[in-house]
Design a protein around this nucleic acid. Sequence first.
DNA 1: TGCAAATGTGAGGATTGCTCATGTTTGAAA
DNA 2: TTTCAAACATGAGCAATCCTCACATTTGCA
Lengths: 213, 213
Amino acid sequence: MEGSTVSGSQDGQIASPRRAPSQQRSRERVERMLAAASALIAEQGSDAMRMGEVAERAGVSIGSLYQFFPDKRAIIWALAERYTAESQACIAAALGEVSDAEGLRRAFSELVDIYYGLFLAEPVMRDIWSGTQADKALRELELADSRANAEFLTAVLKRLRPTADPAALETTAFLIWQMGEATMRLAISVGRKEGDDLVAVYKRMALRELVGE
Amino acid sequence: MEGSTVSGSQDGQIASPRRAPSQQRSRERVERMLAAASALIAEQGSDAMRMGEVAERAGVSIGSLYQFFPDKRAIIWALAERYTAESQACIAAALGEVSDAEGLRRAFSELVDIYYGLFLAEPVMRDIWSGTQADKALRELELADSRANAEFLTAVLKRLRPTADPAALETTAFLIWQMGEATMRLAISVGRKEGDDLVAVYKRMALRELVGE
DNA sequence: TGCAAATGTGAGGATTGCTCATGTTTGAAA
DNA sequence: TTTCAAACATGAGCAATCCTCACATTTGCA
């Protein structure tokens, strides 16, 4: 994560990467840029975020910004990547030790609550996942992320149902995970009360599929 | 639909409406604009659609375009509105006559197939619903559409389970519908084979919730 | 026929993502 | 310590694009 090559996207493809910051000085500046972008997204949404404003708030020139991020998407992408890395660790921890149906029920239920909480609390994550779905590269990041997350679920299912068709389990886990994210996005875009209800229904449906009646 | 006031959106709100075409001449021109926009979206996606190109292909000036559509979103919105009106009629027809569990099972299953077919076949619908989710006004249109569609499902459920809590049925129907749309969007963005599998799993999960095991 | 309203036009204003020629700083080899 | 190439920093300005507006034309009706 730290010091990884900063790259960007165009037409859903990875664009020509920019120099990764190698000196301490520039690494700090990149952090400031990301922090400024994050703050601006939280305030007005990623669509309204202006590159000039990001540079100004970070106290760098527009040229420096483009030295490390090939385009606007790349900044959003970098922020999104951090969130996904964070949540992935959390998911691995929650599902890694599950070994029976009751454990899965508890772990999954808790995981949904945590995820929902994250969606509710993090304006940046909220904006990126619910708003900037238009960006192909971001959609692909989310898809890849979703597949990775679903794999934890798949692994648990394979453990619990060793006789079932592995491909079918994969499909099921992937769909359940994607539906979860769709439910979250929906839940935060309606009122709080209705959102809670929707998440609860999702949880029930998913658990029925995962551990049976 | 025909002759209704063409209006647009900004920040998710309806913007100052433009004149609705009152003369035959202009009505035909508006049709040409919409057709041009539709073709361009089918070719390159709504993001790459340029207003100047729409005007040129429709054989009108850029000024005329903006005479009837307050902004770019309004054109996409107008196209989306037509699709939703179309599909809503189809849903009403499919679910209107259902009176027992077996009928619901058949009707719902058929409906999912039809919807999936639509998503696969219509590049414009595909682009608008899977790509332009970033636009708040479009999200709201989809939400409103989804609620309207879910109501048909709610009505059926209330008929089949008169003793159940109506609010719970509404939530369930809404979520199932939204999950269906999410599944479609997902299904068309992965390979055909995997997409088919995902839709099949969705169908099974939804039916289990709707008509029981 | 006269005329007001509706319609049509396209050059250009305004915004904004992004480039690039140029200058400065850094770290390490000589 | 000196040197110098690579890394870093700058911001005026380019290019793309959405949209406006002052003005011209057409239409429908009294």
